[in-house]
């Protein structure tokens, strides 16, 4: 395990050095990422300025939801980038190289790239989250802060799990990968507003099947001390970061199944 972490850190450091070879164009990538992800908040701000509130939620409150899900997604975009681009490796045959190495395939795929430019999305999420917290003038305990951090990391794992599923799918067909965008990019779009505003099956899907609600909705219910219209008790909110971890581990099992399939078909 410790050995694995050391290897992963070496991968990350190599990846970072590769990306920083051309600092000017790298900076541009970061700024571009910041802009394209930041406009999302601009649209939310525009709607609030016209309508005043989103149901029972104010703009600073929604800012918390928004900031947390964007930071979580940025982490997975950076760290699980290897899974996101795996279909290219499969198509070109470079995935074979990974099978030729005596290490876990998942670790090596993670090591393909740590995409630093996602720091743009992360930064704008952090700024929005900070702004939300200050505007609400609430006093946050250390435990609550810890819950926020843990929930963001759990969210990073959850989205990473989705990228793992996407990569697994590419062992069967590269045509269908865009379906996963429904849950990744679509998930971010969905979860940047409180999940309680959605209806029926849609909300259930993102609460129970792909538990996006655990990234920000449940933790924030506890922190904002808000009675949950979905009826989840606050003590459960404190456990919600674990959902991402469990989800990620499950996805890795699916991944291993996919690798075995690749073994027998050669894709």
């Amino acid at each position: 395990m410790r050995d694995g972490i050391r290897l992963y850190l070496r991968y990350v450091s190599m990846s970072l050095r590769s990306q920083l070879q051309y600092p000017a164009s790298f900076l541009m990538l970061v700024v571009g990422n910041l802009a394209i992800t930041g406009i999302e908040f601009l649209t939310i701000w525009a709607l609030f300025s016209r309508f005043g509130s989103l149901g029972e939620w104010s703009l600073p409150e929604v800012a918390l939801f928004y900031g947390m899900v964007h930071m979580a997604f940025a982490i997975s975009e950076a760290a699980a980038r290897g899974f996101d681009i795996l279909h290219r490796q499969v198509r070109s045959g470079d995935f074979d190289r990974i099978l030729l190495r005596p290490r876990s395939t998942a670790l090596q795929v993670m090591g393909l790239e740590f995409q630093l430019l996602r720091v743009g999305r992360f930064a704008q999420g952090l700024v929005v989250l900070r702004w939300g917290l200050t505007s609400l003038k609430m006093s946050i305990t250390f435990a609550e802060l810890l819950l926020i951090v843990a929930a963001i990391i759990g969210g990073g794992l959850l989205f990473s799990g989705l990228f793992v599923l996407q990569a697994t799918l590419s062992f069967w067909s590269v045509d269908s990968l865009e379906v996963v965008n429904l849950t990744t990019y679509g998930g971010v779009e969905t979860a940047q507003a409180p999940i309680s505003i959605y209806r029926g099956y849609f909300r259930s899907f993102f609460t129970w099947v792909i538990p996006l609600a655990t990234i920000n909705y449940f933790p924030l219910m506890a922190i904002l001390d808000h009675a949950d219209p979905l009826g989840i008790p606050h003590w459960l909110s404190w456990l919600s970061p674990l959902a991402g971890l469990v989800f990620f581990v499950l996805c890795l099992q699916v991944w291993n199944f996919g690798v075995r399939h690749y073994h027998s078909t050669g894709s």
């Binding site: 190599m14 190495r101 090596q108």
Partner: peptide, 26 residues
């Protein structure tokens, strides 16, 4: 295994870095 048409070295980094990565991998 050596594939003549594919590379296992990191394109943007000095060769020695790829070697050191392999040291850790194996």
């Amino acid at each position: 295994v050596v594939f003549g048409q594919r590379s296992q070295l990191w394109w943007d980094l000095p060769v020695i870095d790829s070697f050191e990565l392999l040291r850790d991998i194996y």
